[in-house]
């Protein structure tokens, strides 16, 4: 190996939380495009977003930087095409696709698989 800096984390592959079941959290109609809601699934807090143009995402609601459960209340958007949510506390942006913090890749939040089944939003989790 030579002394070339390598990224601390692979920025292209999402880190997905372990899953073994899917839980329905709310009707998709309830979601406001561009905003998020939090869901409580067996003690895990999941932030669910309906973005205007990239569809649905679910990531951990816990902001590792401020140690608060607030990511669902952040503003969504995209940075160079990457869908992101900005933490409402100190404004770091997390990729909704990979969970990695764009402002400091040493931080990441878990990403959950999410889909709509019969108009209901389902999040895949382990419990």
């Amino acid at each position: 190996m030579s002394a070339v800096t390598e990224p601390l984390l692979d920025l292209t592959e999402p880190t997905i939380a372990a899953e073994n079941r899917s839980v329905s959290v709310c009707a998709v109609d309830l979601l406001v495009p561009g905003r998020g809601v939090a869901a409580l699934i067996d003690g895990q807090q999941v932030a669910v977003f309906l973005t205007e143009h990239h569809g649905l995402f679910a990531v951990g609601n816990h902001d590792p930087i401020s140690d608060t459960n607030v990511l669902s209340r952040g503003i969504t958007g995209s940075i160079n095409g990457e869908p992101v949510v900005a933490s409402p506390i100190y404004k770091q942006r997390f990729s909704l696709r990979t969970g990695i913090c764009l402002d400091d890749p040493a931080y990441a939040v878990p990403v959950y698989r999410i889909e709509t089944i019969d108009g209901m939003v389902h999040v895949h989790v382990v419990s």
Partner: peptide, 14 residues
């Protein structure tokens, strides 16, 4: 409570 992390997967369209 922070969940365990594993490999692969991605978002989906509604």
């Amino acid at each position: 409570e922070v969940p365990v992390l594993l490999g692969a997967g991605a978002g989906a369209m509604p």
